[in-house]
Design a protein around this nucleic acid. Sequence first.
DNA 1: AGTCGCAGACTAGTTAACAAGTTGGGCAGT
DNA 2: ACTGCCCAACTTGTTAACTAGTCTGCGACT
Lengths: 226, 226
Amino acid sequence: MREDVTSAVGAYRRIKHGILDLTYRPGRKLSETTLAEQLGVGRSPIRTALARLEGEGWIEVSPQSGTFVRALSEREIGELSELRGILETHCIGLAVERLPDAELARLTAAFDELGARARRGDAEAFIELDNRLHELSYDTADNALIAQTLRGLRDKVQWIRRACAVSGSRVLDGLTEIEGIHAALVQRDAAAARARMKQHIENAARFCRMVEARPRRVRPDRAPPA
Amino acid sequence: MREDVTSAVGAYRRIKHGILDLTYRPGRKLSETTLAEQLGVGRSPIRTALARLEGEGWIEVSPQSGTFVRALSEREIGELSELRGILETHCIGLAVERLPDAELARLTAAFDELGARARRGDAEAFIELDNRLHELSYDTADNALIAQTLRGLRDKVQWIRRACAVSGSRVLDGLTEIEGIHAALVQRDAAAARARMKQHIENAARFCRMVEARPRRVRPDRAPPA
DNA sequence: AGTCGCAGACTAGTTAACAAGTTGGGCAGT
DNA sequence: ACTGCCCAACTTGTTAACTAGTCTGCGACT
């Protein structure tokens, strides 16, 4: 594995990776001491990594008690999807106006090639295509803050999908949806693109309920955050 | 001052407060050792606080070199305003639909009382009124994630305003703007409310260029972020 | 049998000392 | 006078030991 600049960012990457691939499932306890031993570093880099993960909403620290992978409530999943819908809709609307024809042609080529593979059940091809579409719209929107926010939200959505074990048939439905968005792009129809993107986002995180690894108490919550 | 739960959150509050009230101006170096001595704690709580502030985008840490209060470029200010505009517009649109008449009546009363004071030049009254309007729309939108994001963005905008020493005449202009939004709320006119809110946000952070405390080099940037 | 209390083994929070790297000023050589 | 090197001071990164709070399970008492 590539050598990390600091122990802290290495720990961050490995722990987040462990959360995303469900090695550390929602509700699971993450002991600083244990993680430090497993990663072969002291507790400080672990604490730095955990602080960042807490800030990004992946984990929850209960003082003097434990650190746990967060499970998102249905409400939180809904809030997350609402925010994502607003921003993705905004970006795709701008892409309709601003995306250069040359870029659009390359996207169309990708849809021709990867779309065919996805239709034969290649989930990787679908994910690649989905990424291309979204990232292209982020680039076009030309707002690093919004793009960064959206990437964080997408991480969460994909994590939720995995934690819910959504069926593979979503791939075909999803493909149909993004093909519709692509068609709207080609026709330079902003209203259709926005409406279809909204629908796409709403479908993405629907009917999900996270299952925690173990039941656990609610956070003691000794102090309200600033 | 209220006793803090942990040294780390106390340090976070005091350092952030120092940034907001311009005690620590953009570009200024924040030494962990010095801060630890000033606040009477060890370096660890300071590091925890700084990590959080870095995550929120207030400071920038250069390894083995120093920690600096970030200065926002015109571009970043623009991006920030764009995001804020999108979300505030969304919230005020929902408020038009959902805000109960009783709540609206209380807001109108506040406009009568505080508005008069603001028109006589009471900046505090204007800020209070502005807060009431925005917070009410956040509550109505009923999305904690969006509300939290918006509060963070508002912190930044108010900080920018202070760092740019925007003239006091903005108070009267701002009052006129939010009175217009209030009027649209009363008339239950979503389109007008959204348009006026958009204009209000755009005006808020216009013509600002941050002045750093001291010139300094760009960050060494030894490693690309994850 | 059921319940209360205590003790021990955890947890995260904090500290101080040490390691590794950067920075800037002063001195020597040209 | 100017240039280049070097060293000393200061920076954040990391570690291990210590502190204080929480939880769990065993045991005695009711």
